[in-house]
Every structure is written in structure tokens, then in C-alpha cells.
Amino acid sequence: MSFTIDHVNKSFAGLEVIKDLFMQVEENQIICILGPSGAGKTTLLNIISGVIPADRGKISGFADKNISYLFQEHRLLPWKTVEDNIDFVLKDKISLKERKRIIAHYLDMVDLTAFSAYYPSQLSGGMKQRVALARAFAYPSEILLMDEPFKGLDYHLKRTLREAFIKLWQADKRSVFFVTHDIEEALLMGQEIYVLTDRPATVKGKVPNPIPYYERTRNNSALQRIENEIHQLLSSRV
């Protein structure tokens, strides 16, 4: 099973946002899409999720797949408790008994079991984003789209969330499309890093990152070589 984004183009009111973008990826990988802010990365995710159609080109492998989302904002309903927030996206799809088990499992994975009856207003920003993470994995999906979900958080929080995410993903693999403008984040999370150009977005190059997650530390020389490669790609002209 693989996913193809086949020479996709998209314009808004004459402004070219995505141009001739091609990607072909295997399933159950974490694909990082690295590009400058405002380069059309969110538009690409919207095309993948089917929210907006491509002008030209086509995507394949995504049809009739269930998709989970992780947004920049936690997007939790303030009047629902942590467990009811997760339940909100599971209802009508899974039986009550099964839902209870799933919610308990994923809250345990993000260390929030003790907070299941709390309202979002009673949680810290990082905890709320962990609930959103649990919701994304609890939802029965094959694909997970992440739109800079750790943007604007402090260094330690980002690290905690990254680790929570990798832990969840390793236990329960999905095809992840992770959009970011942060090179470090792409290096630490991606198994394949697609470097995009500025608008109109097209693929400048693809950098594989086969280093296992537990070896991805600052002083790992192999990771530094990949980082250099990304920097070269970013500064190169197409």
C-alpha cells in the first residue's frame, strides 16, 4: 500500500499555492513536510484530507481511508471532560464498551488517566495537546495529518509531546503526514523529510532519515549529516 500525490496544482484567486507537487510514500511511515511558513503546507493537507480539491493532478491511496487530525490548537470542547472529548469523535462508530477500553488505553499512553474527568480549562496547555494526541490515536484511522501541532510551545513541552507522539506511533502505527517549518522537529520525527520550496510549493528534495528514534540525539553525527543535507536543499535553487 502506498500513497501518491501526483503532480498536484492548486491556486486561490489566481495565486499559485502548490505547483506540480509530487510525492510517493509507503504506508505507516512518518512523513515530514518541511517548508517555510505560508508556503501552502496546510493547503496540501487539506487536499490530502479531501476538504478541498486539487486544480490539476490527482492523489491516490487516500480514498475511503479514515483520517485523524492534530491541529495547531488543541480544539477540545470546553464543556466536555477529557474522556468525553475523545468519546465525542468515537460515538456512532464504536460500541460503548469498546470506546471505554480505547479511551482508557490512550489516556494511559499519554499519562492522563488521572485527569479523565477534568475539563480542558483545568489542564495546562501541554496536557490539552496530549488529550488531542490521544483523541487522534483513539480515532480509528489509517492516516494521521498533523499541522504544526507543537508550534508556539516551549522547548520542554515540545520535547514531551514529541516523545508522547513517538511512543503512541510505535505502539500503533499510522501513516503520518506531519507539516512543519522547524528543521529540528523534522529531523527528530521524520522517517522521510520532504523539503518544499517557498510558494508555490513544490518538492525540492527528499531526505530519508533511517536513524532509530532512540538514537536521535543532538550529537549524533549521522543526524548532523542529514541536517546538513536539509540545509543544503533549503538554500539551493530549484
Partner: peptide, 16 residues
């Protein structure tokens, strides 16, 4: 609007 978009993307039923 963001909550609404989230609910639609997660395919929550309209009456819900």
C-alpha cells in the same frame, strides 16, 4: 469555527 471543523473532519454526525 475551529471546533466545528474538527467535528466535521472527525466525521461526527450532524445531529450530534
Amino acid at each position: 469555527k475551529e471546533l466545528l471543523e474538527m467535528a466535521r473532519m472527525y466525521k461526527v454526525k450532524t445531529w450530534r
